[in-house]
């Protein structure tokens, strides 16, 4: 496995590889999100109880689910970075943190905007909402730690430890609706067996969800590339790259 991974663990190869896939994945993201959002807003049927406010579902659920996904990804990267001193893993953890913070923030805002008309309140301190808020604080803490050090290696170490400690919050978010009485309802799509949705409501969701997945990939690549070159700025290949590109 290490042999196979070796060429990808090379910062230069990774930098050029991610640069090549960005346009393709951007096109894919735009296509998926355009179809998904248009479908969600115009063609998906309104809910029998919630009417058109249900359309918030199509951005609330993907961003909320993926915010946890991003955290798990960041934690795996942090673990690799701490255990095997993989500098690329550290770079990807640093690249993921701001994206996770934005997704968590969006899930909280869209949740509030959905809760106000349906539940009757913007916010309630129930277990689901509170643990998601803590997730936002964790992302912000990780970002702050990455920026608190001049030396990227110690920054990565401090942020990595916080990331790993914060992993405990993930199962709490996921199962909060089952462990405790909450105002928030249970899972719709990700539960075992059949999703609790009609199929013509589910399709636009799949497009939106995949669109957000590739959006994360694209933004991660962009940020990952900055992290790579700032961590390798003394290497000859970076020097060549910068001098060839000139100041753009």
């Amino acid at each position: 496995m290490w042999k196979w991974l070796h060429p990808y663990a090379n910062p230069e190869t990774t930098y050029h590889l991610t640069g090549r896939i960005i346009p393709w994945f951007s096109a894919l993201t735009i296509a998926l999100l355009t179809i998904g959002i248009t479908w969600a807003l115009l063609f998906a049927p309104a809910d029998y109880q919630q009417g058109d406010s249900f359309r918030i579902f199509y951005i609330h659920v993907p961003t909320a689910t993926l915010s946890m996904g991003i955290y798990v990804g960041m934690a795996i990267a942090a673990l690799c970075s701490l255990v095997w001193q993989l500098r690329l893993a550290d770079a990807s953890a640093a690249a993921l943190a701001p994206i996770g913070a934005v997704f968590t923030f969006v899930s909280l805002v869209t949740g509030a905007a959905w809760g106000k008309p349906m539940w009757g309140t913007w916010w309630i301190w129930d277990a689901r909402l509170t643990s998601q808020l803590i997730l936002l604080f964790l992302f912000l803490g990780v970002i702050a730690l990455h920026n608190a050090f001049e030396d990227k290696t110690s920054a990565g170490k401090a942020a990595g430890i916080l990331t790993l400690v914060g992993v405990i919050n993930i199962p709490i978010i996921k199962y909060s609706v089952e462990w405790w009485n909450t105002l928030h309802q249970g899972a719709t799509v990700s539960k075992m067996g059949k999703p609790s949705m009609s199929i013509d409501m589910l399709w636009p969701f799949i497009f939106c969800y995949m669109g957000f997945v590739f959006l994360i990939v694209v933004i991660t690549c962009i940020r990952f590339r900055s992290e790579i070159i700032s961590r390798n700025s003394m290497r000859p290949w970076v020097r060549e790259l910068v001098l060839n590109q000139g100041v753009k």
Binding site: A46, L183, G186
Partner: peptide
């Protein structure tokens, strides 16, 4: 405050009978 369930369905489906909607309400 209202607590709704995790089931969403179009109005037309709900017309099929109030039973489905009651079941849906319960699952939350």
């Amino acid at each position: 405050l209202a607590k709704h369930d995790e089931n969403y369905m179009p109005k037309e489906l709900e017309m099929d009978g109030s039973k489905t909607s009651m079941e849906a309400t319960a699952k939350g």
